[in-house]
Design a protein around this nucleic acid. Structure first.
Lengths: 112, 112
DNA sequence: CTTGACCTTGACGCTGATGTCAAGGTTTAA
DNA sequence: TTAAACCTTGACATCAGCGTCAAGGTCAAG
């Protein structure tokens, strides 16, 4: 399928798909006319990327997950690199939550 | 005092001070040679701005606080506009905390 | 007179992910 | 055959808060 269809089926813009390719995620074949040519596995990859971004991962964070899927694994999260990213992200999130709660308290204190 | 001293005394870069001025916070007088000329009240204003930024406010958010102080109030937070900003910010923070916790849960769920 | 430490404005760079033009080539259907 | 709907690369714009050069003016001390 071409980029427009992949965009429709995965719910992202064509611009984003090209961006993912530019960043080295989502490599594509090319048709003879130069158009990008995708298949079902790409739909899966894009969904993985978007799912990760939805929970706060960056594109860089998504890289090992994509690689993991392309290596033939059922889930992108089973590879050690992915696990490591998740662990790091959890720490980041917890830190951020604590920061926010501290700010909240600080703000309430100022207000009284 | 000139910008360098204000920077030292308030712990921010001269670049930041000029930036605050460019954004309409922290208006300064000028000496005959064109140098910015600050006094003690400016030290207080910059400290207010930094304190607000430290708890997550943007420069825009800080605007009503600065205005409030310049209007002669002891605290920048007593004016209704400032109170409104604080209320909005608290809601933002709570929302973000909930988002992060949801992401955290989602992430843990993916991992099992 | 000169050095050095100040100061000025202006403007580009950065981070991340994407929007949005521009200026074209391709394909499909009427 | 021509319009519509695709596709291509390239590159600038956005948001925030600065960092960091550039190219120059000012001023006090030696």
């Amino acid at each position: 399928m071409r980029i427009g269809e992949l965009a429709r089926r995965s719910g992202v813009s064509t611009r984003s798909l090209r961006h993912y390719e530019e960043k080295g995620l989502l490599v594509s074949r090319r048709s003879t006319n130069g158009y990008r040519d995708y298949d079902e596995t790409h739909v899966r990859l894009v969904q993985e990327i978007r799912a990760l971004m939805a929970v706060g991962f960056t594109l860089e964070d998504a890289r090992p997950f994509v690689a993991c899927l392309q290596a033939g694994n059922e889930s992108g999260g089973v590879c050690p690199e992915s696990v490591e990213v998740v662990r790091r992200k959890l720490i980041e999130i917890d830190t951020e939550i604590r920061d926010l709660m501290a700010r909240r308290d600080e703000m309430l204190r100022r207000n009284t």
